[in-house]
Amino acid sequence: MEKLSEMKAIRAAYGEALVALGAENKRVVVLDADLSHATMTLNFSRQYPKRFFNAGIAEANMVCMAAGLSTMGFVPFCSSFAIFGAGRAYEQVRNSVAYPHFNVKLAMTHAGITLGEDGGSHQAIEDMALMRVIPGMTVVVPCDANETKKAVFAAATINGPVYLRLARPATRVFEQNMSFTLGKANVMRSGTDIVLFACGIMVATAMECAAALSQHGISVAVVNIHTVKPIDRVCVLKWAQRCKRVVTMEEHSVIGGLGDAVSDVLLGNGNFAFTKIGVQDRFGQSGKPEMLLAEYGLDTAGSLARIKTLLG
């Protein structure tokens, strides 16, 4: 069982992890597009100014710069907000990074509606979909600060493009010694009646839902799918077949993200009751993160309501 301790922002952990990685690996370089205070690459830029490049407000330019740097044996980490890094620079990511399968890491912060007050223009609810659809792209959505650190180090060990989807707000931190292997899902809690597959900040929500349901004698499994692509097919199938009731939980559109990744695995492999918790094909908007989560049915209450539709 998990132990809930402090709260910490995933992007803050990203900033720290980059500095630690930079100390260990001198080939790591970092690029940002005038958001280094928000993405937390600022730490790295202060520690290793020679290995930091501010591309200016020019995300497409940044991504292709990283592509070039990777051809010289460097390991570039690019950061901006997810909407700009995955959205604005999409075709650059596709053609200058992924098509040649370069070793570029795209670590994009402020993903999802919990970006908050800046509003719908800035809330990426489609970045997982955009990145998942690119051949050879690894897509990782860490659930907390510890997992973020592990994901950053793991991303640097594989040769190829990786998209790290990082959230803005402070979220709860699970216990330190949770293992992390790219492509291998983490079973957070076992159960037999229903399985919740979650990623990112929704893992904590899934755990809360599970705790609430267990009060009513319902046995809930929670699986943290931190690597959305390549997805852990074996684990997904095993828990879906055991529970027969399947819920996916993501702070992303229900189109193209974790829900679709899980349903692709299940297709043709049995009969399941299935529902996707996520943003139901609408844009985000301004508001406080917690109020937005409630508005979009992604808080514990909203999630429970949808989960209960499968429990009859």
């Binding site: 407000i57 909407i83 700009f84 604005r88 007050e117 800046d118 509003g119 719908g120 223009s121 800035h122 908007q285 301004s286 508001g287 406080k288 109020m291 937005l292 508005e295």
Partner: peptide, 28 residues
């Protein structure tokens, strides 16, 4: 401004606010 349900989004939204001709926020 910037509160849930407002017309006055963090960045201009021409679908919501009378007098705004273009939704912007993504620079350039």
């Amino acid at each position: 401004l910037r509160k849930l349900g407002t017309r006055l989004q963090g960045h201009p939204d021409c679908k919501k606010v009378p007098g705004i001709d273009m939704s912007t926020g993504s620079l350039g």
